[in-house]
Design a binder for these strands. Sequence first.
DNA 1: AGCTAAATGAAAACGATTTTCAATTGGCAG
DNA 2: CTGCCAATTGAAAATCGTTTTCATTTAGCT
Lengths: 144, 144
Amino acid sequence: MYTEKKIENLLRQQGYKITPQRRKILAAITSVNEHMTTAEIYDKVCQEDPGIGLVTIYRTLDILTELGLLCEVHVGGNCRSYLMRRPVEHHHHLVCSECGTVVDFTDCDLSGLEDRLTKDTHFEINGHILEFTGRCRNCIVRAK
Amino acid sequence: MYTEKKIENLLRQQGYKITPQRRKILAAITSVNEHMTTAEIYDKVCQEDPGIGLVTIYRTLDILTELGLLCEVHVGGNCRSYLMRRPVEHHHHLVCSECGTVVDFTDCDLSGLEDRLTKDTHFEINGHILEFTGRCRNCIVRAK
DNA sequence: AGCTAAATGAAAACGATTTTCAATTGGCAG
DNA sequence: CTGCCAATTGAAAATCGTTTTCATTTAGCT
Ligand SMILES: [Mn+2]
Ligand SMILES: [Mn+2]
Ligand SMILES: [Zn+2]
Ligand SMILES: [Zn+2]
């Protein structure tokens, strides 16, 4: 699990400066244990620093994504509403299509499939997106 | 495999009118055996009907997606560049991150994983997104 | 303390998509 | 067949999220 300090060091290592804005953005992301959209992150940071520019959020999220510290959720349909969170390890998502709740899971084990595809297509596979969609427990209960 | 006629009937059944524009859009989509972006579909239709409005493309693609006749490719990063194609059966994508080539594949067999998740999370799972990314044969060769 | 490249924020630009609205038209009722 | 009307269309404007530009500020190193 990444702490703010660890991320700061990582940024420094890469030659990025540690600014108050970046600190607040990191604080916002690491303080919430949920996936957030860019807008949600912006709103959260604004509570601490109403003057911050949305551009700065974008720029910082870009850097963090670049460094692999954030992951995205691609939701079907309107895929622009993708969410972000602090990273843990390689994992995937189970998304409730009614309320948007995201549950992480690990152990995807797609190696068999990956091998087959490599053989069949001669692609050099280096990643995958895997997400399940459905209705979460709450939404199932609520619908009754 | 859907023919233009079949799709037209489906539209009629749903109360949609069959217009020359819609016919041309269907022709464009079914004539190409490749994934196409909205813009590419627009360009293709324009060859037949230069007067057609881009709005009409959007509206028609919306309807077709709604009816489940089209599927999307969610590419990581800029996920707005999603592609569309005529449907066949349940399948997934292998996307070359250099040239954008999309290869379809079937037989994902995620049922074991799905069962485990259902048990663990009490979600009612009804779908999944699965995509591999990598470099296609051409791009590997070209890089050498 | 002073320097400089990196970072910031306001504003404008951007590209894709959506909305609005007046004109047109498919398909049914008469 | 004809007429009607809700559905459809296309031009234009609006919207939305994101990116670019640029002048100003600042982190981090002498
Ligand atoms: Mn995640
Ligand atoms: Mn496909
Ligand atoms: Zn839910
Ligand atoms: Zn390629």
